[in-house]
Nucleic acid binder design. Structure first.
Lengths: 390, 390
DNA sequence: GGTGATTTGTTGACTTTGGCAACCTAACAC
DNA sequence: GTGTTAGGTTGCCAAAGTCAACAAATCACC
């Protein structure tokens, strides 16, 4: 019963190799040998097994102008795919993502009003049904990953509280799984953005990073420590928005006074600029950079200084390599990176600040879908042998 | 060269078994079989190896009044020991600690004034020389662990900045290693306290916990996430003291305004009580509990509320199971646990607060020495085979 | 274009290691 | 004493990775 130790080892090594080609992209067999430190023959056998499972494919090597026998390139099999779902205030987005990290198709279903959980599930299920044509015969879908803008109990995908959507204790994963017939995994959108950022964005190669994302209705985020995403005891970690940054009276979405989310807001910037709420992140950034009105500058400085307080607190406690800012926080930073840099420096211990980077996220919308899909891939990556037997 | 995979496996399993008996204390072979899921024969071989290395011993089982053949009890070998060193403002403490976690001897060398790094090394070396009598023939010392009240670069034991001691960039490990001839490892005292607390204190069994320690001159702490101590990028994580908690003007040891360390102080409590600085933690707690003077109450409430802000921020971000408070923070909490509880609850998301415990540390002074010794044991626990060949 | 150097895949023998099962031992219970 | 139960011991087996020898594929140089 109890998986024999040998099995454990084999699985672990298979996992390592599969993760490697998944994250690094196509890699030669010789490269895998070097990266893992395993023997050539072992890699050979391993790749053969993974190929048999249909998880990877071998290609003829590219001409490298190098002496010696060319090594076949191992790449993940593009057939293997996952569905990503992202419910938002005004739309539900569904995408088909390959294990190779490529978004194959993407459907955005706009909604006139904020969808209920049931409506979001219906919409997502319909969109997935539309995708069946693309899937049939072409892809093996391993599951669905949902990026939820709110607190999610990761163990069973229960949405505890999604303030923007107005959802409370919605068994989202269960409902969606019943509707589409695939296993469903849900996670906090910021955490998933963080993961995508670490794997393919500003945080590549970092083991300790903090990610803050500024959205229309609040600030979320996530933390990676020692290379692992911090889930916390129940999976709710990363709520930077409710960190107290001043004694002010402004109130955030949870009713707390003087918090980051209360003081640093998208709407505050838009008001100062005289813009409406329908401005996207890029437009906001351009408008901020273009404006030299004193009131805009004052608001930007005020927000940057508050942001610095929250960042400094987290940096002192976690000593990360990088802080990655997404959404309107990236726009805010872009206006005056130096001010933010110095403000954080003034509130952190010099030794801790040493070597800290504060970067903007590269996170495109696709990257978030990739992060969600990653959730669905996790099972296969964790135990390659589980694939294909279902 | 490259350790064969077989070796890795064997080492990993050996490590697991040794860690088990180290942390859980004496355990029957049958118990190990159950805990590891390995085969009886495997455990048998493993224990034999570890016994041969001199790391563990087998004892006759205690009478258990249980049917069946009694299983020999496996315990770590008490011969294996480490030295722990703890430099403080007014003394340097040195202890001899067994791998079984027992403090064999303990020497406190008082100092009329705060020692320089060189003086601390000299004192420690002298104390260790005094211990030779206890060591010779009776113990195999694997190394020295130093608990430093300040920022330590863990990789090489360089003390970057220890404000209370007035040290900056002192190569403490190097100096001490040269003086005593044992390998020396240094770590932040709060981190070590945290470890000891997790292994044998209030945080037993927790995978996510936050630890804050209030000392005479400041507040330090540490974080465990997913069962691992958060070191951060450079090993400086855990500086909770410099989290901003108010817009006040009080300044902390690093010159930051309105931080936890500036607002929540031992001296503030002592002043309110009309006591001097030489009060120890227990006396302080009793005095606080005994007093019902309004000014004491007011000061306690003020400090508790500030503490709650810092805790809430960390709790929102890290979603731990337990917050452990040590030093005078434990005394502060003891006066009015409910106020602290409710103040934190009022500043954290309900879902995140759910199931959170806020406890006092059990950390005795001995436990800190054990934490420091643990640092020295880490190498042996990590690769049992490395022991005895030196 | 042939020859050698270099790198890498392939194959089968070898080694290590843990699992397994049969057997033996030591306690309790009646 | 005999039965029952739990656990150590031993020899055999299977799995998995290493190793070494060989084959293949490329480049470089004559």
């Amino acid at each position: 019963m109890h998986g024999s130790s040998h099995d454990d080892v084999r699985r672990h090594i298979q996992r390592t190799v599969l993760r490697l080609v998944h994250h690094r992209g196509p890699t030669s067999r010789a490269g895998l040998t070097r990266l893992t430190g395993l023997n050539r023959s072992t890699i050979s056998a391993l790749v053969a097994q993974l190929t048999a499972l249909g998880l990877v494919e071998e290609r003829q090597p590219d001409a490298t102008n190098q002496v010696g026998r060319p090594s076949p390139v191992v790449a993940v099999n593009g057939r293997v795919a996952a569905l990503a779902v992202h419910p938002e205030i005004d739309a539900v987005t569904v995408a088909l993502v390959g294990l190779d990290g490529v978004v194959r198709r993407r459907i955005r279903c706009p909604m006139p009003q904020t969808p209920s959980a049931a409506a979001a599930v219906r919409l997502a299920a319909d969109a997935i049904a539309d995708l069946r044509g693309d899937i049939e015969g072409r892809h093996d879908v391993v599951g669905v990953g949902v990026a939820v803008p709110g607190l999610v109990r990761t163990s069973d995908g229960l949405v505890r509280h999604a303030p923007h959507l107005g959802w409370t204790d919605e068994p989202l994963s269960e409902m969606l799984a019943a509707a589409v017939g695939y296993p469903v995994h849900a996670g906090n959108d910021a955490s998933l953005g963080l993961l995508a950022e670490r794997d393919g964005g500003s945080g590549v190669g970092c083991t300790d990073l903090i990610y803050l994302n500024g959205g229309a209705s609040g600030i979320g985020g996530g933390v990676i420590v020692g290379g692992r995403v911090v889930g916390g005891h129940a999976g709710y970690a990363g709520e930077f928005g409710h960190t107290r940054v001043s004694d002010g009276t402004a109130v955030d979405s949870a009713g707390f006074r003087g918090t980051l989310e209360a003081e640093v807001t998208r709407s505050g910037l838009l008001n100062a600029l005289g813009l409406t709420g329908e401005t996207d992140a890029d437009t906001l950034e351009h408008a901020l950079l273009a404006s030299d009105a004193p009131r805009v500058k004052a608001e930007v400085h005020r927000q940057l200084d508050h942001l610095a307080v929250a960042l400094a607190g987290a940096v002192n406690v976690l000593n990360p390599q990088v802080v990655v800012l997404g959404g309107f926080l990236a726009a805010l930073r872009a206006v005056d990176p130096d001010r933010l840099h110095h403000a954080v420096a003034a509130l952190t211990l010099p030794t801790v600040f040493e070597g800290l980077r504060i970067d903007a996220a590269m996170l495109g919308s696709d990257l978030l879908m990739i992060g969600a899909a990653e959730l669905a891939f996790a099972g296969v990556l964790d135990d390659p042998h589980s694939f294909g037997r279902a």
